[in-house]
Design a protein around this nucleic acid. Structure first.
Lengths: 338, 338
DNA sequence: CTGTTAGCGCCTTCAC
DNA sequence: GTGAAGGCGCTAACAG
């Protein structure tokens, strides 16, 4: 008795104590089937559902999961000057939310300038678990692993074996691009990229592309962004015109934009005079006079899986004894350019 | 005294009662500057920050603010087929978060297919207040007003006087576009749009454009999307070539893309042969060979203000007695096309 | 303006 | 397997 809140009314209606009501929602297996049913029936009748704030307070947790992203201002080699994270991020969010909403947790968003800022945050006070968006450096991975609460990193994270992680497979993506060209009988390809080190996503994409063609595809390195794509394409024009090159794989759509503009300025049409395939499935393809064939990371799917993993980790005590890993494969998005 | 938690330690260190600590975070204006400073200093020293779950519990609310957006699948006339909400929305989020994070509330996201779904949600159980994203129909505004918790709508919402609202001013935006053309000595403008009714954002933009030029600017209506822009531009080409038209205002960047592609196919260059100004400051301008001059809604700013208003409404009891309204003016983003 | 006091709804011992 | 009781950190009266 005592209380006069909904829960006590449920308890009274079900003929049990409020402690039993609590148990029904937290460890149902410890309650006899009869009383459990009675409680659930009473709850339904009274429209009762447990208060998450009170629960979190008493449990001394936060009831929150945080999705962390870094600004990565300096990363011109990757996104160029284009604020593309803006678009990509929304896909990510929808994936994450679809999982969190049906859990005991709520989602919390945080954007940081650098991994160092992680240290200044009282994680235990604001979050029970953290999902890191777009981790792709050792530094970030290490910082994530050092948090005082469980965490998982995505999506270019296959290499970071000391974290829980959910990743894409850039090599597979490169191969998918090559396979598509081969299936359409192109056999004189080149690849345009700007590599960093050998394990970078860009290098992996090229590697996969070569594997798809089963040979060392000629590689043309350039600067990041559409300017780089334009510049390197200039040097290829003569070979394209004489048919020595019939197809081009590009490290990302960003760079492909430059290639396209160069082709157009030389009177060439992608999809007609040259097969062209990008990577990342950027929405700004809308601004092109045709659809660019590209490879999609499926960000929404990756992050849905990542969040699912995080919840599993939390419910199993958050131990780091064994790091979990999962891979989500990219997929081809057919356009008009191949 | 009594308690042994962080907050009581902050109170002790600052030489005040714990209630005063609470006031510093909830209604700082009610605390003398001296004690306020003392509390904040003590809090910093002890690494204290208020527990949002406890706050929500005591306050008998959920501690959550929900940001609701509708899918608006049918709205091809507005966004075309382009998933532009994806990037726009992230700007919105950053604005909203900047305010929520320093409040006692947390942010909650929800995407619904239609206003009808609003009725199926037990709002009191999940949210203390709701911010509606991108409301632009009577139906949505009415549905928002009917919620059992306080709400505010943005951003094409100037016309909905029965809601709390934070809006852009499309007429001012149109005028900004016209002014910019005039300042650069263009005096033979036309305007391209697809109007709906007279109070629609599109109509307002046109109206403002005319006001800027102080005359009825020739209006060319077309279909939505870049296809529409392309088609209507075809009909204008002769007049542009003979100089009867020296500048074009376009209802949005989306449509402007079509205009640009048409101009290019006719050997004309925006910014050289014709002044061109869009609206919305879309990021896909990156895919163009130049920067499109455009008008920016400043979504991040609008939604920062909207959230600030909502918090004020909540702290003042959430009454609807008097509906609050605020306008955030758009701004010109100078590119290479004017 | 400031302090005191009484719970908010829940979970977790601790008995039984 | 179940009930009783204490208290998580905070805020809303109410006094002063």
């Amino acid at each position: 008795m005592s209380g006069k809140n909904n829960r006590d009314r449920v308890a009274a209606l079900a003929g049990v104590s409020s402690a039993t009501v609590s148990r029904v929602y937290n460890s149902p297996e410890r309650v006899s089937a009869v009383k459990r049913e009675a409680v659930l029936r009473a709850a339904r009748e009274l429209g009762y559902s447990p208060d998450k704030s009170a629960s979190a307070l008493r449990r001394k947790g936060t009831g929150q999961i945080t999705l962390v992203s870094f600004e990565k201002k300096g990363r011109t080699w990757y996104w160029g000057d284009f604020p593309v994270a803006k678009w990509f991020f929304t896909d990510v969010l929808s994936g994450v939310l679809s999982v969190v909403e049906s859990s005991m947790f709520r989602l919390n968003l945080k954007t940081l300038k650098s991994p160092e800022e992680l240290k200044d945050i009282p994680w235990e006070q604001i979050s029970d678990g953290v999902l890191f968006y777009d981790v792709d450096t050792e530094e970030e991975a290490a910082a994530a692993a050092a948090l005082p609460v469980p965490s998982i990193i995505s999506h270019h994270t296959a290499a970071y074996v000391n974290n829980h992680r959910c990743c894409t497979d850039n090599r597979a993506g490169g191969q998918i691009a090559a396979d598509h060209l081969k299936e359409n009988s192109f056999d004189r390809p080149v690849y345009i990229s700007y590599l960093q080190d050998l394990n970078s996503p860009n290098s992996q994409r090229y590697k996969g592309f070569c594997e798809g063609f089963d040979k060392e595809v000629p590689l043309h390195l350039t600067e990041p962004g559409k300017e780089g794509g334009y510049a390197v394409c200039e040097t290829l024009i003569p070979h394209i015109k004489k048919g020595a090159i019939d197809s081009v794989g590009v490290v990302n759509d960003m760079t492909a934009i430059g290639v396209i503009q160069c082709l157009q300025n030389h009177g060439l049409t992608p999809g007609k005079d040259l097969a062209l395939i990008g990577y990342d499935n950027m929405p700004f393809n809308y601004a092109l006079p045709f659809r660019l064939t590209t490879v999609d990371l499926q960000p929404s799917l990756i992050y849905r899986e990542a969040m699912t993993m995080l919840l599993e980790i939390l419910s199993s005590g958050g131990g780091k004894a064994e790091f979990r890993s999962k891979v989500v494969l990219p997929r081809l998005v057919k356009g008009d350019s191949v």
